[in-house]
Design a protein around this nucleic acid. Structure first.
Lengths: 332, 332
DNA sequence: TTGTATGCGTTATCAG
DNA sequence: CTGATAACGCATACAA
């Protein structure tokens, strides 16, 4: 059964393909009667638009690429899912590219995406080193501040505020010697800002900052080993702001086999507010990022960008929320 | 800067577009010398294939739709991610459709996918009622047994074995009165088989089955409420096989506020082996599904199907594994 | 308000 | 081994 085309519709209705096309796209002018007849024919034949032809003709592909460091991470996979749905509802397909935090992969993916003819790209977080000077497609950045903001939109949670509030909560609940746990050599706009927020809180509450003590570095595999636990013990760390929830999970798990009690001896707060925070023991406090707002803003901006209907160079900041649970306050 | 096309390459090299096309696709015959020249020109110009044109001409789209009941579910989102990567590596884009377990949405998505011109569809789990008689595209089924297997491939973990082994482990570890927890009115091939495995285990170990006691139904929101806990208490349920890990999480959370201790008073085992099982207290036992094998088999089958290089009607069964943890055995 | 004709970039057929 | 050309389905400039 051959697919029916506008040519067939033309034959059936007696109009020309041009008129059919106009009715379908609702542009140009035609009589109501014509519209009715064409719509009838479409109904009867089950006509379906051939998007390859349309795309070729209009030089569009109705697909968007999204570049993300690590799709197994809660925040990223939620974000991708939400963006995917929003784009789908706008008629776009989403092509997901997982870089494994490798700059080479990122570059190669961007090439592939250009090659595939996507209409635009959403770049999520990732290593700061890579510049986008040579990306010709419209793109927006989530959580990674581009060096040159002139021709893009930058969307991000207020990570500085998140780091600040996370640390402040630890201090307000009695921590005299809080530390931050982060991954060695993993630089990103968002983690840098969270760290800056951490520092600012220490300063505002007049606590000392000693980089050798107050920063707990994990290796790339994010392993929490005995050395790290010893470090906490030796230096009387009584509060821990982990750069994300997943790392907090690993600390909580490891600390079960130590002399630390949470939150009595050490309080912990993470970032992202993973769905499972409520199900671990103790329930994990965290900084909540509004995934719905972020994805909505991203898709809106990108689609407007495609329509050249937006001023470039903007930065959009999404507020965070503190979600306090047992890992900081026993009774909640 | 206009995109360079094979026409430009033809002009540059002095060959015809036909020859250029042959070299690019490596079909037909041409001299090594020709190939070299063309490849040079491609290199120099940075030529990129226009897939819309190719797709139009070849009546292909190099995109695949995947229909999934609930992307927020661990098993489904992992599966989708893995399939997405495999397809991408084969040059295909993936269009993800989340049905929210609604048959209407499912039907409408299938229409949209046909409309978008995808080359094939992967259908994951979902309600059994829907028939695929009218799906014209090639499709494969994961975890949902199609009524008519003649023109598809059916891929699934061995859910019966999973249900059997989960229940057997409870019994072997001392449960005299195990129950199964499942969602009311959510019929799927996989949950039916898990349930069948549960029944078979009871029978083999000569335990009674009383549907009013041994089946714990949750409502669609999967809420574990006080009534349910009372039911466990009143009927001396000492083992619980939950139809997935997520429901197990909710039980574990709720049971913390009851007189039950896990695993002393009641043992729990789930299904899917969620990544977070290791991080909750007690660590959750589960039936592990091999997501890599499932996704690999699915993509392989579908791609072969597109090449008409596979015998239809096959069923592929993927073995499961029991992962025992603290929720069944205290020391592991 | 409608029709005609052209071209988007590619592949495939046929002829040389 | 290579070239000329038609065709894929659609949108649009221009003509009527």
């Amino acid at each position: 059964m051959k697919n029916v085309t506008i040519k067939d519709l033309a034959k059936i209705t007696g109009f020309s393909v041009a008129t059919i096309s106009r009715v379908i796209n609702n542009n140009g002018r035609f009589s109501e009667e014509t519209r009715g007849k064409v719509l009838d024919a479409i109904e009867k034949t089950g006509y379906q638009m051939n998007y390859s032809a349309k795309n070729l003709r209009m030089n569009k592909s109705f697909s968007i690429g999204i570049i993300v460091p690590d799709i197994s991470n809660y925040f990223f996979n939620q974000l991708v899912q939400k963006i995917e749905i929003l784009l789908f509802n706008n008629g776009y397909s989403t092509i997901i590219c997982n870089t494994d935090r490798s700059i080479e992969k990122e570059k190669s993916y961007i090439k592939t995406l250009e090659n595939k003819g996507v209409d635009g790209i959403i770049i999520v977080s990732g290593n700061q080193q890579f510049k986008f000077e040579d990306v010709k497609l419209p793109y927006i950045c989530i959580d990674r501040e581009p060096l040159n903001k002139k021709n893009t939109i930058f969307i991000s949670s207020d990570h500085f505020d998140g780091g600040y509030k996370a640390t402040s909560e630890l201090i307000k609940h009695g921590c005299k010697n809080p530390a931050i746990a982060m991954v060695k050599d993993r630089e990103s706009t968002s983690s840098n800002l969270r760290f800056a927020g951490f520092l600012k809180a220490l300063k505002d509450y007049e606590l000392d900052f000693n980089p050798n003590i107050s920063i707990v570095y994990l290796d790339k595999k994010e392993e929490v080993n005995d050395n790290i636990i010893n470090h906490l013990q030796k230096n009387n760390i009584d509060g821990l702001f982990t750069i994300n929830d997943f790392i907090a999970f690993k600390f909580i798990d490891k600390l079960k086999y130590s002399h630390f009690n949470i939150p009595e001896d050490i309080k912990i707060i993470g970032f992202d507010d993973n769905y499972f925070n409520k199900f671990i023991t103790p329930k994990l406090s965290s900084i909540y990022q509004d995934l719905d707002l972020i994805s909505q803003a991203s898709v809106d901006s990108l689609l407007k960008m495609l329509d050249k209907d937006i001023v470039l160079g903007q930065s959009i900041s999404i507020p965070i929320e503190v979600h306090l649970r047992e890992s900081v306050v026993k009774k909640i």
